[in-house]
């Protein structure tokens, strides 16, 4: 198995928690469904609970939205100081990646300028351990700017993330990340 990335880990914890809660409610209601109560007796309590549930869910939505704003992958957020970054031009073609360089330094902000010439591709960055670290689409006629910092030196893998025809699974390219002096 591939180790989970930090974000994937968080997704797993959140998902497991919520699924457990959902499962618990459904199982409990199913198990106690036999003892019959009049709906008139149940409903007022149910509606009271519902207004709380509504409030909690709305709060969760608002919380999630605000928190997500803090770690957006978009250029303005990923490079807030507008510091100069090392630029790498990326072009996706059926079925290869054309990069202006295949060696980049670790720890520095890299700006990938990603586009495609034929169909849509997806520029996905995998760690040497096989963890998906992030991605951006490669679309004909557009250039997407991805600011990215490689945490460690090593051989990373660029993998196509958007179905682009028969050879899509083989659209791979190694990217060497070296220790910057």
């Amino acid at each position: 198995m591939v180790p989970l990335g930090a974000r994937q880990d968080l997704v797993l914890v959140l998902f497991a928690t919520m699924v457990t809660a959902i499962g618990a409610v459904f199982v409990w209601v199913a198990l106690t469904a036999r003892g019959r109560l009049e709906y008139q007796a149940v409903r007022p309590h149910g509606y009271f609970l519902r207004s709380w549930w509504f409030g909690v869910l709305l709060a969760l939505c608002a919380f999630g939205f605000v928190v997500s704003l803090a770690s957006l992958p978009y250029p303005a957020e990923a490079n807030p100081t507008r510091a100069p970054a090392l630029q790498v031009r990326v072009k996706g073609v059926q079925w290869a990646w054309l990069l202006s360089t295949d060696r980049v330094p670790a720890g520095r902000l890299i700006e990938f300028e990603v586009t495609a010439t034929d169909v849509n591709h997806g520029f996905g960055i995998y760690s040497p351990h096989g963890v998906l670290l992030g991605q951006v689409q490669a679309m004909p006629g557009y250039v997407n700017h991805l600011f990215f910092r490689f945490p460690h030196p090593g051989v990373y893998l660029i993998r196509c993330m958007e179905y682009c025809g028969a050879e899509h699974p083989y659209m791979l390219m190694p990217l060497t990340v070296y220790q910057a002096s």
Partner: peptide, 20 residues
């Protein structure tokens, strides 16, 4: 997520709750 979670799914569970 709010309308289904708060009204339809919640309502369905409430409908089943101790309904026999």
């Amino acid at each position: 997520s709010v309308p289904p979670a708060v009204v339809t799914i919640f309502g369905a569970v409430l409908l089943v709750y101790r309904s026999g």
